[in-house]
Design a protein around this nucleic acid. Structure first.
Lengths: 150, 150
DNA sequence: GTTGCAATTGCAACGAGTTGCTGAATCTAT
DNA sequence: ATAGATTCAGCAACTCGTTGCAATTGCAAC
């Protein structure tokens, strides 16, 4: 990842504005996230960065990801696979319905969550951060027989 | 066992109906869940059961809890504390808003999630299992431009 | 009561993620 | 460019949770 990725500067600024230091490790984690399309696990990021910088430590990756999530630059999601998925925020937000039986995941448009988000803000004064959400349950095929069936 | 709890029979039946065996370990895990009020971690359950039955293994607790969750008898929630919370389903379902900054948790009535649940069923044919949900974000006090200014 | 078989347990080893500590690096001010 | 203050990286050890395997147990049929 020796190439400057579009947005590097922006991400650097975001770190600075939050009072965080800009370190090579952080930039490399960010670059890895930008290089990968969609979700990445911490380990995928770890491996990708280590191709160029083999001294990076696992805990650094995790700590960096935690900071980025706090900042709202990165979204974490537990899709129930035993590993968390990380993703740069900034693209179109989307979410997932995960079937607990067959494992299928259905993509969910963000607008479906808007009413809930609005209500939480109004009634509870709570700013829900649902950048990349996972909702568990049963997909159509795995449901017993619908509401009327048995 | 000294821990006969109201509902033991019902829970036994539920296991049987699901084709699962009724084992002392399972009943003890269930009894522990019934004894504890509200959420319990796997370790709390483990410790509680081991007071009477010191030979119980950790993995048995986890596997039992997994089965119970599959059956819908128990709800798991990750409140972001690094440990999962388990709770017997059957009481009034409730959920939590968790502030990522100060850690405060606000209880959320189940009815707030009904519209979302209904829409997921209608539009996606997906039966969301939200027994005990955690939604992360920022509470009123921790929001940059809150009512009292930032 | 005994038998047979599948489900379940315990064990040990593993994988993901976290934490306290110390030396190193970043940033600010000069 | 340098010094000082403070954050951050790397390490190692730890916790929570999972998994493969062999021995055991629950349950139903005899």
């Amino acid at each position: 990842m020796s190439g400057e990725v579009q947005g590097d500067k922006t991400l650097q600024d975001a770190l600075r504005r939050a009072g965080l230091r800009v370190t090579p490790q952080r930039m490399m984690v960010l670059a890895a996230l930008a290089a990968g399309e969609g979700h990445m696990t911490a380990d995928e990021i770890f491996d990708l960065v280590r191709r160029e910088y083999p001294f990076l430590n696992r805990s650094t990756v995790y700590r960096t990801l935690d900071r980025l999530v706090e900042l709202g630059l990165v979204a974490v999601t537990d899709l129930g696979e035993g590993v968390r998925q990380y993703e740069l925020v900034g693209t179109q937000p989307h979410h997932h319905l995960v079937c607990q039986r067959c494992g299928e995941t259905i993509e969910l448009a963000d607008e479906v969550l808007q009413p809930l988000r609005a209500r939480l803000q109004e009634d509870y004064g709570f700013a829900a951060r649902m950048d990349h959400f996972a909702i568990f349950g049963l997909c159509r095929a795995c449901q017993p027989d619908g509401p009327t069936g048995g």
